[in-house]
Design a protein around this nucleic acid. Structure first.
Lengths: 215, 215
DNA sequence: TTAAGTTAATCAATCGTTTGATTAATTTTG
DNA sequence: CAAAATTAATCAAACGATTGATTAACTTAA
């Protein structure tokens, strides 16, 4: 009764994603990755060509899953802009916290000066998200649903920034909240719903025109 | 008319801080640092003992400058909690954007799993800031100045997160805002005042009890 | 048999660090 | 003061270790 015989390449990608997230690209040696994955070192080059090819494969696998999930929210004409914002927050935070290792890794890669194919792909992927969120915000302004003087770009930076802070500064985050935010159960049951709830209330108070004089 | 004869150790620290911020600790080789600084490689070990010692020296220099600047705001009894928040934002963002290389470096270090003396020192320094901000927020709640149901820890994460997003994802940030946010002049004249203004408006709408019915 | 999968051994390159020698600056001594 | 002695600063070269990558032999599976 051995371990489930899942695809070995997928297993390597899973492990590498975690090790890259923990040590950074430069800090994660191919020996460490192959050791953690329980495979021979040469298998990394056999499957993925090179260390950078491995990183690229991780990226491709994740983006392929969520590529066409982006535009669904903005397309729904029957809901208000504010509801779109709510759905975007729930979708984005939900997705990001489920792949927190990948997100951590991506954020680290963006933080160091790199050029080339992968750097451009990462930038493009994130800009897809950015532009989708911006479109919702601009639409809400034009419809008179949101205040006219809101800083849409900073709102985007806020959602992305809060996520980065919670994922990429886990020691600080754990000390602040009083529990281990790296623990998958805590992240899923405590941190994720709290972040979603907070971002909704925060943006609601900043974006919406207060017209409920009958409160 | 040669170059200003400033302290050579300080010069190395300046350069190393920038190179660490650009390439990360593991990505920045001692040869690259010494080359950029125009000094012999052995000087790094001669002055700082090791590569990690160099990183530690960078940290010590910056923290020594701002160690006692933390508690000044909270001590002022004559201003409201909201004014304290405003002053904290202005002080924190102003300070952080003036040492953006250092901040970038610190955030990268926190993002990778490291243990030891430096990791603890970094955590402690940041928690000083965190606790100071939290104290202001709790005080505002107790005084009835802020809403009772605000998530103080998430507010802290917001300020820190927005800063991290703007500094550590410069490509995204530049694309979003339409100018090079790495350029010192843009950062000082355009980005910094915009962030300060935004955070004030954002937190004002989230924290304050809306009691100005005579608006 | 053939091709794909897997391994240990090995490669050149680069890593952080150390060395011994040399020069510059400072202090001590007569 | 000046010469001698001592310390500090700087350098080219090399160190052992580790890096990502490759090889060639071997095993497995179709």
């Amino acid at each position: 009764m051995e371990k489930e015989k899942i695809d070995k390449k997928d297993h390597i990608l899973d492990v590498a994603e975690r090790v890259f997230a923990e040590h950074g690209f430069d800090g994660a040696s191919t020996r460490l990755i192959s050791g953690e994955a329980g495979v021979n070192m040469a298998m990394l080059n056999y499957y993925f060509g090179s260390k950078e090819g491995l990183l690229l494969s991780i990226f491709e696998r994740r983006t392929a899953t969520f590529r066409d999930l982006i535009h669904v929210i903005g397309k729904n004409e029957s809901i208000s802009s504010w509801q779109k914002v709510v759905e975007y927050i729930e979708a984005y935070i939900g997705r990001v916290f489920n792949n927190n290792c990948f997100q951590k890794m991506i954020h680290q890669e963006m933080s160091v000066r790199r050029t080339g194919e992968l750097a451009d792909k990462i930038t493009n992927m994130i800009m897809l998200n950015v532009n989708e969120f911006r479109k919702i915000l601009h639409e809400g302004i034009e419809k008179g649903e949101f205040k006219r003087d809101i800083d849409t770009d900073m709102v985007v930076a806020t959602v992305f920034g809060v996520k980065s802070q919670l994922l990429n500064a886990p020691q600080i985050c754990s000390l602040m909240l009083g529990y281990d935010t790296q623990d998958p159960q805590n992240m899923e049951e405590k941190l994720k719903p709290r972040v979603i709830d907070y971002l909704k209330k925060l943006l609601k108070s900043y974006l919406l025109i207060e017209n409920d004089n009958a409160k």
